[in-house]
Protein backbone atom coordinates (compact mmCIF):
# COMPACT_ATOMS: atom_id res chain seq x y z
CA UNK A 1 0.00 0.00 0.00
CA UNK A 2 1.27 3.46 -0.80
CA UNK A 3 2.75 5.36 2.09
CA UNK A 4 0.69 8.55 2.01
CA UNK A 5 2.65 10.15 4.82
CA UNK A 6 5.96 9.81 3.03
CA UNK A 7 7.24 13.32 2.36
CA UNK A 8 10.56 12.23 0.96
CA UNK A 9 11.02 14.21 -2.23
CA UNK A 10 13.80 12.10 -3.70
CA UNK A 11 12.73 11.10 -7.17
CA UNK A 12 12.00 7.44 -7.40
CA UNK A 13 10.67 6.08 -10.63
CA UNK A 14 9.43 2.92 -9.00
CA UNK A 15 7.54 4.40 -6.09
CA UNK A 16 3.99 3.34 -5.59
CA UNK A 17 1.32 6.03 -5.71
CA UNK A 18 -2.42 6.18 -5.39
CA UNK A 19 -4.33 6.61 -8.61
CA UNK A 20 -5.65 9.95 -7.31
CA UNK A 21 -2.11 11.26 -7.00
CA UNK A 22 -1.10 10.03 -10.43
CA UNK A 23 -3.99 11.82 -12.12
CA UNK A 24 -4.09 14.93 -9.96
CA UNK A 25 -0.37 15.74 -9.85
CA UNK A 26 -0.09 16.99 -13.45
CA UNK A 27 -3.40 18.85 -13.10
CA UNK A 28 -2.31 20.55 -9.89
CA UNK A 29 0.97 21.52 -11.57
CA UNK A 30 -0.95 23.05 -14.48
CA UNK A 31 -3.22 24.91 -12.08
CA UNK A 32 -0.18 26.36 -10.31
CA UNK A 33 1.31 27.36 -13.66
CA UNK A 34 -1.98 29.13 -14.50
CA UNK A 35 -1.93 30.99 -11.20
CA UNK A 36 1.68 32.10 -11.81
CA UNK A 37 0.75 33.45 -15.24
CA UNK A 38 -2.17 35.41 -13.81
CA UNK A 39 -0.03 36.80 -11.00
CA UNK A 40 2.65 37.94 -13.43
CA UNK A 41 0.09 39.64 -15.62
CA UNK A 42 -1.62 41.37 -12.69
CA UNK A 43 1.70 42.62 -11.39
CA UNK A 44 2.60 43.97 -14.82
CA UNK A 45 -0.71 45.86 -15.09
CA UNK A 46 -0.32 47.33 -11.60
CA UNK A 47 3.25 48.43 -12.29
CA UNK A 48 2.64 49.99 -15.72
CA UNK A 49 -0.94 51.28 -15.70
CA UNK A 50 -1.35 52.42 -12.09
CA UNK A 51 0.53 54.49 -9.55
CA UNK A 52 0.45 53.71 -5.89
CA UNK A 53 -1.26 56.27 -3.69
CA UNK A 54 1.09 57.77 -1.18
CA UNK A 55 0.35 56.92 2.38
CA UNK A 56 -2.29 54.34 1.49
CA UNK A 57 -1.50 50.68 1.31
CA UNK A 58 -3.04 48.71 -1.60
CA UNK A 59 -4.56 51.84 -3.11
CA UNK A 60 -3.78 52.73 -6.72
CA UNK A 61 -4.56 55.59 -9.09
CA UNK A 62 -4.89 54.89 -12.83
CA UNK A 63 -2.41 56.60 -15.15
CA UNK A 64 -4.44 58.82 -17.45
CA UNK A 65 -3.54 59.66 -21.04
CA UNK A 66 -4.99 62.33 -23.26
CA UNK A 67 -6.88 61.61 -26.45
CA UNK A 68 -8.37 64.02 -28.94
CA UNK A 69 -11.79 63.89 -30.52
CA UNK A 70 -12.73 65.76 -33.65
CA UNK A 71 -16.18 65.98 -35.13
CA UNK A 72 -17.50 67.82 -38.13
CA UNK A 73 -20.61 69.85 -37.40
CA UNK A 74 -22.87 71.16 -40.14
CA UNK A 75 -24.94 74.28 -39.53
CA UNK A 76 -28.24 73.60 -41.24
CA UNK A 77 -29.16 77.29 -41.09
CA UNK A 78 -26.39 78.13 -43.52
CA UNK A 79 -25.77 77.35 -47.17
CA UNK A 80 -23.09 74.90 -48.29
CA UNK A 81 -21.32 77.75 -49.99
CA UNK A 82 -20.97 79.66 -46.71
CA UNK A 83 -17.61 79.58 -45.03
CA UNK A 84 -18.82 78.37 -41.67
CA UNK A 85 -21.32 75.90 -43.07
CA UNK A 86 -19.15 73.10 -41.68
CA UNK A 87 -16.94 73.48 -38.63
CA UNK A 88 -14.64 70.96 -37.03
CA UNK A 89 -14.93 70.76 -33.26
CA UNK A 90 -12.00 69.39 -31.34
CA UNK A 91 -11.98 68.41 -27.72
CA UNK A 92 -9.51 66.59 -25.52
CA UNK A 93 -10.52 63.94 -23.07
CA UNK A 94 -8.69 61.67 -20.68
CA UNK A 95 -8.65 57.89 -20.82
CA UNK A 96 -7.04 55.48 -18.37
CA UNK A 97 -3.99 53.84 -19.94
CA UNK A 98 -5.41 50.51 -18.75
CA UNK A 99 -8.25 50.82 -21.29
CA UNK A 100 -5.87 51.08 -24.24
CA UNK A 101 -3.40 48.29 -23.54
CA UNK A 102 -4.25 45.03 -25.34
CA UNK A 103 -4.36 42.76 -22.31
CA UNK A 104 -4.13 39.09 -23.09
CA UNK A 105 -5.69 36.71 -20.64
CA UNK A 106 -3.46 33.76 -21.41
CA UNK A 107 -4.39 30.58 -19.64
CA UNK A 108 -4.13 26.83 -19.98
CA UNK A 109 -7.36 25.65 -21.52
CA UNK A 110 -6.60 22.03 -22.32
CA UNK A 111 -4.50 19.39 -20.60
CA UNK A 112 -4.04 15.84 -21.75
CA UNK A 113 -2.47 13.37 -19.35
CA UNK A 114 -1.39 10.14 -20.91
CA UNK A 115 0.09 7.25 -18.99
CA UNK A 116 -0.31 3.58 -18.43
CA UNK A 117 -0.59 2.58 -14.83
CA UNK A 118 0.61 -0.69 -13.52
CA UNK A 119 -1.61 -1.59 -10.61
CA UNK A 120 0.60 -2.90 -7.86
CA UNK A 121 -1.91 -3.17 -5.07
CA UNK A 122 -5.49 -2.46 -4.18
CA UNK A 123 -7.07 -1.71 -0.89
CA UNK A 124 -10.60 -1.50 0.32
CA UNK A 125 -12.28 -0.59 3.52
CA UNK A 126 -15.70 -0.15 4.97
CA UNK A 127 -16.98 3.18 6.12
CA UNK A 128 -18.15 3.22 9.67
CA UNK A 129 -21.52 4.64 10.61
CA UNK A 130 -19.65 7.55 12.14
CA UNK A 131 -18.01 8.41 8.81
CA UNK A 132 -21.36 8.35 7.03
CA UNK A 133 -22.95 10.64 9.60
CA UNK A 134 -20.16 13.20 9.19
CA UNK A 135 -20.70 13.51 5.46
CA UNK A 136 -24.42 13.78 5.88
CA UNK A 137 -24.93 11.96 2.60
CA UNK A 138 -25.72 8.44 1.62
CA UNK A 139 -22.51 6.86 0.37
CA UNK A 140 -21.40 3.36 -0.45
CA UNK A 141 -20.25 1.77 2.72
CA UNK A 142 -17.40 0.00 0.95
CA UNK A 143 -14.62 2.14 -0.54
CA UNK A 144 -11.75 1.02 -2.75
CA UNK A 145 -8.44 2.48 -3.77
CA UNK A 146 -6.04 1.56 -6.53
CA UNK A 147 -2.32 1.94 -6.01
CA UNK A 148 0.23 1.64 -8.73
CA UNK A 149 3.09 3.15 -10.63
CA UNK A 150 3.51 4.56 -14.07
CA UNK A 151 4.30 1.68 -16.36
CA UNK A 152 7.40 2.19 -18.38
CA UNK A 153 9.12 0.37 -21.13
CA UNK A 154 12.53 -1.09 -21.29
CA UNK A 155 15.10 -0.25 -23.89
CA UNK A 156 18.06 -2.26 -24.82
CA UNK A 157 18.92 -4.81 -27.37
CA UNK A 158 21.31 -6.81 -25.37
CA UNK A 159 20.04 -9.13 -22.73
CA UNK A 160 22.77 -7.77 -20.48
CA UNK A 161 21.85 -4.10 -20.75
CA UNK A 162 18.43 -2.73 -19.99
CA UNK A 163 17.20 0.73 -19.25
CA UNK A 164 13.95 1.18 -17.48
CA UNK A 165 12.01 4.38 -17.89
CA UNK A 166 8.58 5.43 -16.85
CA UNK A 167 6.57 7.54 -19.22
CA UNK A 168 4.02 10.12 -18.34
CA UNK A 169 3.05 12.40 -21.22
CA UNK A 170 1.38 15.70 -20.36
CA UNK A 171 0.23 17.83 -23.29
CA UNK A 172 -0.71 21.39 -22.44
CA UNK A 173 -2.45 23.92 -24.66
CA UNK A 174 -2.61 27.57 -23.64
CA UNK A 175 -4.58 30.21 -25.48
CA UNK A 176 -6.07 33.65 -24.88
CA UNK A 177 -9.28 33.35 -22.93
CA UNK A 178 -11.92 36.04 -22.27
CA UNK A 179 -10.83 38.52 -19.66
CA UNK A 180 -11.92 37.72 -16.10
CA UNK A 181 -15.16 39.30 -14.88
CA UNK A 182 -13.32 41.51 -12.41
CA UNK A 183 -11.11 43.02 -15.09
CA UNK A 184 -14.07 43.55 -17.42
CA UNK A 185 -15.92 45.31 -14.61
CA UNK A 186 -12.99 47.68 -14.01
CA UNK A 187 -12.68 48.42 -17.74
CA UNK A 188 -16.42 49.04 -17.93
CA UNK A 189 -16.33 51.43 -14.97
CA UNK A 190 -13.47 53.42 -16.44
CA UNK A 191 -15.03 53.46 -19.91
CA UNK A 192 -18.32 54.82 -18.60
CA UNK A 193 -16.49 57.75 -17.06
CA UNK A 194 -14.55 58.64 -20.20
CA UNK A 195 -17.32 60.78 -21.74
CA UNK A 196 -16.69 64.48 -21.28
CA UNK A 197 -19.48 66.07 -19.31
CA UNK A 198 -21.53 68.67 -21.14
CA UNK A 199 -21.57 72.20 -19.87
CA UNK A 200 -25.19 73.26 -19.36
CA UNK A 201 -26.60 76.64 -18.55
CA UNK A 202 -28.04 76.74 -15.07
CA UNK A 203 -31.72 77.55 -15.29
CA UNK A 204 -33.07 80.27 -13.03
CA UNK A 205 -36.71 81.03 -12.26
CA UNK A 206 -36.45 83.99 -14.59
CA UNK A 207 -35.62 81.88 -17.71
Amino acid sequence: MADLKNRNLKPNANSELTIDALISSPLVAASKANAEMMLGQTQFILNTCFTKKEGEANSYDPIMIQMSLSQSIIDSNKLPSDEDYMTIKKINFEVPLFCLIPINSLAIDKITVDFVMEVTSTSSWKLTDEDIDKTGKRVNKKQAQLNGKIKGGSNGDSQYTKECSSKLAVHINASPLPLPMGMLAILDLYSKNINPSQKTKRLTPYD
Binding site: F44, T48, I65, Q66, M67, L69, S70, Q71, L97
Partner: peptide, 20 residues
Protein backbone atom coordinates in the same frame (compact mmCIF):
# COMPACT_ATOMS: atom_id res chain seq x y z
CA UNK B 1 -16.43 61.36 -34.67
CA UNK B 2 -12.72 60.69 -34.92
CA UNK B 3 -10.55 59.79 -31.92
CA UNK B 4 -6.79 59.77 -31.85
CA UNK B 5 -3.91 59.87 -29.42
CA UNK B 6 -2.73 63.25 -28.23
CA UNK B 7 0.94 64.08 -28.90
CA UNK B 8 1.75 64.67 -25.26
CA UNK B 9 0.58 61.17 -24.29
CA UNK B 10 2.39 59.37 -27.09
CA UNK B 11 5.65 58.76 -25.15
CA UNK B 12 3.93 57.11 -22.21
CA UNK B 13 1.82 54.82 -24.43
CA UNK B 14 4.91 53.92 -26.48
CA UNK B 15 6.84 53.08 -23.33
CA UNK B 16 4.01 50.89 -22.02
CA UNK B 17 3.66 49.01 -25.31
CA UNK B 18 7.41 48.35 -25.36
CA UNK B 19 7.26 47.03 -21.80
CA UNK B 20 4.32 44.82 -22.77
Amino acid sequence: ASVGLSNQSRPIVEKTMTEL
